[in-house]
Design a protein around this nucleic acid. Structure first.
Lengths: 341, 341
DNA sequence: ATCACATTTCAAACCGCTTTGGATTGGGAC
DNA sequence: GTCCCAATCCAAAGCGGTTTGAAATGTGAT
């Protein structure tokens, strides 16, 4: 059933039917209801392809997912972020278009998205510092929202981010208050913007206590279980090992815990650990009692917020906020305890 | 730059330009090259929306991701499956459309996908046994491929799956050969088809050794870290605890390991564990030496295969295989050892 | 009765491409 | 020289909606 057929059944012009269904004012309330009833009866659904061509809008949002050609890692937070964003898109009639692109081909991907008009806007994932995608998207004139931030961007740009700096600063302070002085940092790779900010927070808290950060107990690696384990083993068996760890992801934290327990130590008693918890749905930090003490911020909620912001931008809604800094909670779990001198 | 403008620049009709670019035979080789050159020069990209309307094809594939309204879990294998599928789509000019849908609303989602013509085909995720989506998609006439299988489907349907039964049968046999007799099964929720098949393999291997499965050491739960931990604690502290575990996912295995180590036991020495490893990119089972002994099968590869099969179906390629059973490898890691009587 | 004006409806153009059904041209067969 | 056919190209009609500009109808004021 298409518009023309429906119009013929109703003995109306396609124009009127279209307007009736789209809520235009210049149509009689009685006819509008007649049209609506018929549309329901015949289960009329306007053809998306036609709407898109006619209106010039794609009614779709793109998420370009760069897949590192070398280590081929898919960011584990994607699934939840997208689940959150997807909710908002479907409520607003937008489709979610996923482009999986080798990371050396991203620029071409964005240009094509623009010139072929497949999407009305995009979400930028995993920003690096001085990310080239931001000026590119500005130039192309595609509405976009960055999940995270890119330090040192020349122009302002819309973003949704967690206050990574504050979170890690608070977490470090918490450990300091427990008496820990030798606090290791297991960070993500530091070309990622969030990793830089977390380190900054960590260093600021140390500095405020007159402690100079020790590069020997600061690592920046891929946030995997095995990396967490390897770093844990190395740091714990070194001379003057840390008594506490600040870890950038739950998965890495699981690896660290493995290293701790292999050495016959107890997490929370012998060694304190704070992780960052993205509240991934398949990796909950405990059901009721948190396993890890954690800085917690829902990445799914970030997805919702970013999607809402992007739709606002696409619709050209003025005055909507263009920046959103989400504060992480500090959740006290069983993985931290006072320093045992 | 659109087709009409390009045609005018070339002093040709849009017809000819279109044909030249799409490789139709009725155009002079010389003009074809002239057209191609101009297209490059002006960076002409045909408008996707127009192509879609004109051809009636959506050039897009849908992945409907049901989000459980209650526990809100996003399947952690999605990200990698989709990364694999996405590679194949982009190579073939298809877009990947993600619909995040509350799981009680899935039927409507599929019907709408059909009647609005947004996609040419879909991938069905996480099939249950007797999955209602399969007859629905058959009726709607949308090409589809199921990732996994649905026991007891009346009609045949295209699928890509791991041989879950064989994998768990082999794993169980391996444990039996090591002398274990009390082998626990930590399975996924058993309305999922793969969980049923894994249990069948487990039970078959036990039966071949004259062992009656003991429901007391068989669990079917959500495959999370905390569930693995909770079940591990419960089973290990029960009278007559198992000496080996067969676990349906790596994440669950991490939780189990935590329970084992909390009790002062060593995995691989005191308790043997075999997990199923989907080779998730962010959750590798060790870098060179596997942490867990595992049945291993790449979910990303499954994504590639399913995508390729679906595109074949959409294109109406006859003779292409409609079913693909991938065998899992048994990888020997450090988490298994002989039974210590 | 007449006119201005708001309300309601419609015909037709348009979005940018594909595709059908000719039209034109040139060369070879007869 | 005529006819046929292959090789090229084109005009126009689509795809299924939206949107513009105009027409038809009804209403109240004059």
């Amino acid at each position: 059933m298409n518009l023309k057929e429906l119009a013929r059944k109703l003995d109306l012009s396609p124009t009127t039917v279209s307007r009736a269904l789209n809520g235009y004012p210049e149509v009689n309330e009685a006819t509008r209801e007649r049209v609506a009833a018929a549309a329901r009866k015949y289960n009329y659904q306007p053809n998306t392809r036609a709407i898109r061509l006619a209106t010039g809008r794609a009614m779709a949002v793109g998420h370009v997912i760069p897949v590192a050609t070398r280590h081929e890692i898919v960011n584990p937070v994607f699934a939840d972020f997208i689940a959150g964003a997807g909710e908002v898109y479907s409520r607003n009639g937008y489709d979610l278009l996923l482009s999986v692109v080798p990371d050396d081909d991203e620029e071409r991907a964005y240009r094509e998205l623009k010139s072929r008009g497949t999407v009305d806007g995009v979400i930028v994932h995993s920003p690096r510092m001085q990310d080239e995608r931001i000026p590119l998207l500005h130039d192309l004139g595609i509405p976009f929202v960055v999940h995270g931030r890119a330090t040192d961007s020349a122009r302002p740009y819309p973003w949704v981010d967690v206050n990574n700096r504050r979170a890690f600063q608070r977490a470090t302070e918490f450990l300091l208050d427990l008496g820990h002085r030798r606090i290791a940092l297991l960070n993500g790779l530091e070309f990622m913007d969030f990793a830089i900010r977390r380190r900054a927070g960590y260093e600021a808290a140390l500095a405020a206590h007159g402690i100079t950060p020790d590069p020997a107990i600061m690592a920046a690696e891929e946030m995997t279980e095995t990396c967490g384990h390897r770093l844990g083993v190395a740091l714990l068996s070194a001379p003057n090992p840390p008594t506490a760890f600040l870890v950038s992801s739950m998965i890495m934290g699981l690896g660290l815990r493995r290293a701790i327990e292999e050495r016959g130590l107890r997490m929370g008693r012998d060694v304190s650990v704070i992780i960052h918890d993205d509240e991934l749905s398949y990796l909950r930090n405990g059901d009721d009692v948190p396993i890890f003490t954690a800085t917690r911020s829902s990445v799914r909620e970030a997805g919702r917020q970013a999607a809402a912001m992007l739709i606002g931008l696409i619709r050209g809604e003025a005055g909507a906020p263009r920046e959103l800094l989400m504060e992480a909670e500090l959740i006290i779990g069983q993985s931290t305890g006072p320093h045992r001198g």
